[in-house]
């Protein structure tokens, strides 16, 4: 196992060392590249003056607010579509017409309707998060063991109880998986909106660093955004294993 770990670390370490030596030896001034040591210093400075913490908070707050909003809509629709087959068939064309709209295309609409700031970003993130959660929770509800539904009928549960006591618990592992995928999408969309236009958060900070010709700071933000993406995914995978056991990860679509 530790041998595998060494092999996994070999490539990134070699690349970092090569970059460092290359940058120091050539001594070129570049607007795009900086030696890794300078990047590390820039990252530490950004932490020291607190700018990166504020930007991270803005980005994560928008991403999670959008995820919750889009997730709630997607989950409600997904469960409803999964339970009532006729409803699903009636909504099919509408959903298939809205789904392929790239979330970022809504940016100009959100911009004129809501202006710059959190609200516009949250709406776009929410739109992007609705679809994966809708599709996956619909599939999760449909794949519930039919006997459970029969039991709920035999017990004469009310529709509300049926959803709360039978359907949601049975579909929960796959719904959590949907939320995990959507959380990744939420972060990507939030950063993209910030890079494209919205002057808050990590995306705006990395653009500012680029325009200020600070490649070290720009790359520091890039590394930090990558770390957040990795930590978010890894944390949710751990939570998923912990909550639902390794079986929950087994049948996952890549």
């Amino acid at each position: 196992m530790s041998g595998e770990r060494w092999k996994a670390a070999a490539l990134p370490v070699a690349l970092l060392v090569a970059l460092e030596i290359g940058a120091r030896a050539s001594g070129i001034q570049s607007d795009a590249l900086a030696p890794p040591s300078a990047v590390a210093v820039a990252l530490a400075e950004a932490f020291a003056d607190g700018s990166i913490i504020g930007a991270t908070r803005d980005t994560l707050a928008s991403a999670f607010a959008g995820l919750l909003l889009g997730g709630a809509v997607g989950l409600a629709l997904g469960i409803a579509l999964g339970i009532f087959q006729p409803f699903d068939r009636l909504m099919e064309v509408t959903i298939e017409a809205l789904r392929p709209i790239p979330s970022i295309a809504l940016l100009p609409i959100a911009l004129i309707a809501l202006g710059f700031g959190y609200r516009m970003e949250i709406v776009i993130v929410a739109f992007a998060c609705v679809w994966p959660i809708l599709i996956l929770s619909r599939a999760a509800v449909r794949s519930i063991e039919p006997r459970l539904i029969e039991v709920s009928r035999a017990l004469k549960l009310s529709p509300g109880d049926r959803v709360r006591k039978i359907i949601v618990p049975a579909a929960l592992p796959r719904i959590f998986l949907a939320f995990r995928l959507a959380a990744g999408i939420a972060l990507i969309v939030a950063v993209t909106v910030e890079i494209a236009i919205n002057p808050i958060g990590l995306g705006a900070s990395i653009m500012t660093a680029q325009q200020a010709l600070r490649p070290d700071l720009m790359l520091a933000y890039l590394v930090w955004i990558g770390l957040i993406g990795y930590a978010l995914n890894a944390g949710l995978v751990v939570a998923q294993k912990h909550l639902f056991g390794p079986a929950a990860l087994a049948g996952e679509a890549r």
Binding site: A8, I188, I206, M207, L222, I225
Partner: peptide
């Protein structure tokens, strides 16, 4: 040797590469 690095890079929001590309 390479696959772990790729897996590590996968959750990176790809749009974050845009400023680097602009530079």
């Amino acid at each position: 040797y390479v696959a772990p690095s790729l897996e590590f890079l996968r959750p990176l929001p790809v749009s974050a590469i845009i400023p680097v590309a602009i530079a």
